[in-house]
Amino acid sequence: MALTAAYKEEEIFEALKDMGKEVSQYCLGVLNNGMDLELMNVTNIILIPKILNPTSMENFRPISLCNVIYKVIAKMSAFMSERLISDNILLAYEILHTFSQKRNGRKGLMALKMDMSKAYDRVE
């Protein structure tokens, strides 16, 4: 009977707590020591139907499924209270610079998803 019992919220928290030290060490390694994030930066993109019987691509909504550790690192590095929203201008410039370098034959990939409404409610 125990094998078919429903899971409980406490069991989820216990599993997360057991992983906490490893997750913390990995995140700190990436943020403080420049450890490679490539293995965690893997995202699966799936298509969710918007209607019951989709017939074309317009009837689907793409959803990205990111690794949880990657999300933790992204949130910690992106939304820090001492940063100004104008810092995003510098980020945008760097992105455009990277794209122009790619046109000149440089190799590399980049993806960026930004939602400024979640950053802060104030602008300095």
Rank of each mutant, 00 (worst) to 15 (best):
M1K: 10
A2W: 09
L3Q: 01
T4C: 13
T4N: 15
T4Y: 13
A5E: 09
A6G: 07
A6F: 11
Y7T: 08
Y7C: 04
E9I: 13
E10R: 15
E11I: 06
E11C: 08
F13A: 04
F13G: 10
E14F: 09
E14D: 08
L16P: 09
M19H: 12
M19G: 05
G20D: 15
V23N: 09
S24R: 13
Q25W: 09
Q25G: 07
Y26R: 13
Y26G: 10
C27I: 08
C27P: 03
G29T: 06
G29M: 04
V30R: 07
V30M: 08
N32I: 12
N32P: 05
N32F: 11
N33V: 02
N33I: 00
G34R: 10
M35L: 06
D36E: 13
E38A: 13
L39V: 01
M40Y: 13
M40V: 12
N41F: 09
N41G: 07
T43S: 11
N44I: 14
N44D: 15
I45Q: 00
I46R: 02
I46G: 00
I48P: 07
I48A: 06
P49N: 09
P49C: 04
K50N: 09
I51W: 01
L52P: 04
N53I: 07
N53V: 11
S56N: 14
M57R: 07
M57I: 10
E58N: 08
E58Q: 07
P62T: 02
P62E: 01
I63S: 00
S64W: 09
S64D: 07
L65S: 05
C66Y: 13
C66H: 15
N67S: 15
N67E: 14
I69Y: 00
I69H: 00
Y70K: 02
K71I: 11
K71V: 09
V72D: 02
I73W: 08
A74M: 08
A74Y: 03
M76L: 14
S77N: 11
S81D: 15
S81A: 14
S81W: 11
E82P: 03
E82M: 03
R83H: 13
L84P: 00
I85P: 07
S86H: 10
D87W: 12
N88E: 03
I89N: 01
I89M: 04
I89P: 00
L90F: 11
L91D: 02
L91Y: 05
Y93I: 10
E94N: 12
I95P: 01
L96C: 01
H97Y: 03
H97E: 08
T98Q: 12
F99E: 06
F99A: 09
F99R: 09
F99V: 11
S100D: 02
S100K: 05
S100E: 01
Q101P: 00
Q101S: 06
R103K: 12
N104L: 14
G105P: 09
R106F: 15
K107T: 10
G108H: 06
G108P: 05
G108L: 05
L109P: 01
L112C: 12
D115Y: 04
M116I: 11
S117E: 10
D121N: 12
R122M: 03
R122T: 05
R122Y: 04
V123D: 03
